[in-house]
Amino acid sequence: MAGVTEPPVVEGRVADAVAGHWVDGWAPRAARPYLRLARIDRPVGWWLLLLPCWWSSALAAVAAHRPYPDPLHLLLFLVGAIAMRGAGSTYNDIADRDLDARVERTRGRPLPSGQLRTRDAAFFLVAQALVGLLVLLQFNGTAIAVGIASLVPVAIYPFMKRVMPMPQLVLGLAFAWGALMGWVAVFGTIEAPAVLLYAGTIAWVIGYDTIYAVQDIEDDEIAGIRSSARFFGDRVRPAVGLCYGLAVILVGAAGWQAGIGPVGTLGIALFAAHLARQVSQLRDRDGRGALSLFRSNRDAGLVLFVGLAADAAWQGIPGA
């Protein structure tokens, strides 16, 4: 059409990567397949892995009557989330390389497209996992044990889409694990607020990854790949709404158990409003819209973290 300029096609870039990302323009060409394998060009993934860690750290600060979450813990969780998101994605791509070749959105990934050999990806996986282990070793012994236990759902998730009608449940078990880590890093034990936060985060993950799966629903039907979007069918919107509603209730219960005040309650309310907006805008088989809504969960998660952290600061003010 006259007057309309199509965006340039970047070699090796997958459909849901961030347009104009530095990986496509500035990274050395030899490094680009590895960076794409680690999803560096799709940063929302590590944000979604990181945010439950930060929520848990902020909630622990409230319960411990500290004015703010431990800054070192927040930094370690950031580095660990980027490393382990990359390791998990690399492992997932190794396991799914044949399935990925049959789905339009994923066939351009480094392994199915032939940009990297499986052996190279395996070495890269080990390197990222070692970074994650180094980060984990900075915490107390209980936190180390809890962190290692997270590898169980991570290991089995790629295979669940072959046998389970709703593999997002297993993804939730893995991606929500940080909701336990921030708390146990402070207290050295898992208590009711952390368990409730973990359960709420699982519901949040199932909700947002169901939105994400809307992108692939037609290709998944052809390839026989199972997902919650396929499982819910025409009931995707109410199903996501149910997941999000459960997430808000459980996160609220976690906050109540930890002793949050009005500032934290406001943060949870704003988090709930953001999730409600996503549900209202979700449309069946609207892949582009689904991707935008999925990515917006980073902002929803940041709103909740700021609310919980601000509550810790507010309660630290004498007379508050």
Score class of each variant (00 low, 15 high):
309 A>V: 13
228 S>F: 11
219 D>A: 00
107 R>W: 08
126 V>E: 06
229 A>V: 03
172 G>L: 07
156 I>H: 02
280 S>N: 09
292 S>G: 13
222 I>M: 12
76 L>R: 13
258 A>L: 11
222 I>D: 05
165 P>G: 11
172 G>Q: 10
257 Q>H: 12
206 I>N: 09
88 G>K: 10
30 A>V: 14
302 L>S: 04
163 V>D: 07
85 R>E: 02
27 A>Y: 03
6 E>V: 15
153 P>I: 03
104 E>H: 12
295 R>Y: 08
211 I>H: 03
167 P>D: 12
201 T>A: 15
124 F>T: 01
318 P>S: 08
238 P>M: 10
206 I>V: 15
318 P>N: 04
25 G>W: 10
139 F>L: 11
11 E>F: 08
308 L>R: 02
131 V>M: 08
280 S>H: 12
240 V>F: 08
40 I>E: 04
251 V>P: 00
11 E>W: 05
189 T>G: 06
155 A>M: 14
215 Q>G: 05
64 A>D: 15
254 A>H: 06
42 R>I: 11
102 R>W: 10
98 D>N: 12
165 P>L: 10
61 A>I: 09
214 V>A: 02
318 P>G: 07
223 A>M: 07
80 G>D: 11
147 G>I: 03
247 A>L: 03
42 R>A: 13
244 Y>I: 03
143 A>F: 01
315 Q>F: 04
113 S>D: 11
20 G>Q: 02
131 V>K: 05
232 F>A: 15
27 A>W: 09
286 D>Y: 04
24 D>E: 13
281 Q>N: 12
265 T>G: 13
80 G>P: 10
101 A>M: 10
62 V>C: 11
63 A>F: 08
66 R>E: 15
151 L>N: 00
266 L>Q: 08
248 V>L: 06
183 W>T: 01
182 G>K: 06
295 R>N: 14
157 Y>W: 07
34 Y>I: 01
25 G>D: 13
218 E>H: 13
234 D>Q: 15
50 L>V: 02
99 L>A: 14
89 S>C: 15
111 L>D: 10
210 T>V: 05
204 W>M: 13
111 L>G: 02
88 G>N: 09
109 R>M: 10
176 A>N: 02
147 G>E: 07
50 L>G: 00
319 G>P: 07
104 E>C: 03
238 P>T: 06
111 L>S: 07
263 V>E: 03
219 D>H: 09
156 I>P: 01
61 A>Q: 05
145 A>D: 04
61 A>T: 06
18 V>T: 13
12 G>F: 12
253 A>E: 12
26 W>Y: 13
276 A>V: 12
232 F>L: 15
276 A>R: 14
212 Y>S: 08
123 F>N: 08
96 D>Y: 10
281 Q>K: 14
130 L>Q: 09
64 A>N: 13
121 A>S: 00
123 F>G: 07
236 V>N: 05
42 R>Y: 10
192 A>H: 04
101 A>R: 15
184 V>K: 05
27 A>C: 11
242 L>M: 14
269 A>L: 15
57 S>Q: 10
320 A>H: 14
98 D>P: 01
152 V>T: 03
271 F>L: 04
45 G>K: 06
229 A>Q: 01
211 I>K: 04
75 L>R: 12
229 A>H: 09
200 G>V: 01
250 L>I: 11
191 E>N: 07
54 W>C: 00
138 Q>F: 11
58 A>Q: 06
